[in-house]
Simulated scan of single mutants.
Amino acid sequence: MNKPLVEHNKISALTGTRVLQLIDSLEAGGAERVAINFANALVGEVEGSFLCATRAEGLLKSSINSDVGYLYINKTKTIDFKAIRRLHRFVKDHHITIIHAHSTSYFLATIIKVLKPKLKLVWHDHYGKSEFLEQRPKGVLKICSYFFNHVFSVNSKLETWAKQYLKAKSVSYLPNFAIKNKIASTTNLKGEPGKRIVCLANLRPQKDHLNLLQAFKDVLKTHPDWTLHLVGQDFKDAYSKSVFKFINTNQLEYNVFVYGSCPDTSAILSQCTIGVLSSKSEGLPLALLEYGLAGLPVITTDVGDCNLVVSNRQEGLLIPSNNSLALEKALLEFITNPEKAKLASSTLHHKVELQFSEASAIKTIKAIYQSILV
C-alpha cells in the first residue's frame, strides 16, 4: 500500500518545488539507497519530496521517511500503459515540478516528460561499469537525453562520457554521500569480534568477490581465526554459483559467511573490523563512504572514483584490481598493524564527514533544481 502524502508547512528556499525521485526498485543497492537518501534529505528543503519505485519494492522501503510521498506502480514491461497512467496521474495530482530519475528509470521519466512538457527532468547516472564505457549501450539513452534538463554523474568518467555522447542541456559530477541508517540491528555476524572483514556489495561480476575470496583464503594460512562477511543481494545466477562453489571447494564455510540483502547495514558495519571492495569497476561506491562513516579502515581497488575517497595511505589502502596478491598483502597490513588501521579509519572518517556529506550534496542539488526551474 502506498504511504499517504504528508504536506510540509516549513517554508523552504525552493518554495513551489516538488521533486519526485524515480527508481526501479527498493532492493539494497547503491543507486536505490541514494534515491532514498535524496528523498529523505529533501524533506523540508523543498515544498514536497516524493519517491516512486517502478518495478519492485524491497528491503529499503522501511527506511523511507514518513514525510516522503510514496508511490509504487508495479511496472512489468518496458511499455506498461497501466503503470504510465498511474505515474502520470500521481505527477499531475501532486503538482510535481521535477522528476529526478535514477539509473534505467530515465525511459519512463522521459515518457512522462513527453506527456507533460513543462515538467523538468533530471537524470542521475549510477552506471557501475565505468571502466568499460566503450561497451555501454547508448542508442535509446541518447534519444531520451534530448529531454534531460540536467544529468548528474556519480564519477568523473561518467561526466566526461555524458558530455561527449548525450544531448542533455547540462551535466555535472555529483559525488554520493552516505548516512547512518537508523534501522535496528537484526543481523548478528558470526565469527570473533575484532577479526571480521566485511564486503558490502551485491553478488555481481564487476564486484569480483572471487578475487577477494582468493586473497582471503591465503590470509587464513597465517590468521585462521579471521572471518569474511559478504553482504549484498544474491541474484541466484551463474556468478553467484561460482562464489558459493569457491567457498565450498576450498572448505571456507567456517570462515566465510554470506548474508544476502540486509537493511541494517550501519549496525552490520559496527560489528566489523575492516571494510573491503575488490571491484573490477565502480562509479563512486556508496559502500566505500559507508565504511568511512562507520569508522572502518578501508581497502579498495583503484577503479572509478575510489581514489578520490582513498587518495593516500593515511586514508586507506588503494590497490590494483584483479590482483589477489596485492589484496592479500593489504589485508595482512591492517591485520598485523592495528595502530595503522586505527589511524586510517580515523582519517577517512573525518574526510567522509567533511567532503561527502549530506549537507554538501543537497546544497548542490538544490542549486541545480533552482537553475532549471528558471
Rank of each mutant, 00 (worst) to 15 (best):
A238S: 13
G191L: 03
P224Y: 08
A178W: 00
A168L: 10
S270H: 13
L174H: 01
V219W: 00
I183G: 05
H223C: 03
A168R: 03
R204I: 14
N202E: 13
P175Q: 02
R204C: 12
C199R: 06
D218S: 10
A201S: 15
K221N: 13
L200G: 02
K241M: 12
V231T: 05
W226D: 00
T249E: 15
Q251E: 13
A168F: 05
P205Y: 13
N181I: 04
E253T: 15
L212D: 05
K169I: 10
T186I: 12
D225A: 09
I179N: 01
S242W: 10
K207S: 05
S170G: 05
Y259R: 11
D225M: 05
I268S: 06
G191N: 02
P263L: 07
V258Y: 08
S270W: 06
K221D: 11
T186G: 07
K207G: 00
T249N: 15
I197D: 01
I268P: 00
L213I: 10
F257N: 12
I268W: 00
P193G: 12
G194F: 08
L200E: 01
D264N: 04
H223S: 07
E192W: 06
Y173Q: 01
T249L: 15
H229E: 04
H223V: 06
K190T: 05
K169Y: 08
T227W: 00
G260S: 06
V256H: 09
N250Q: 02
L230Y: 04
Q251A: 10
Y165G: 00
V258W: 09
C199Q: 11
N248W: 09
T186N: 07
Q214F: 11
T222S: 14
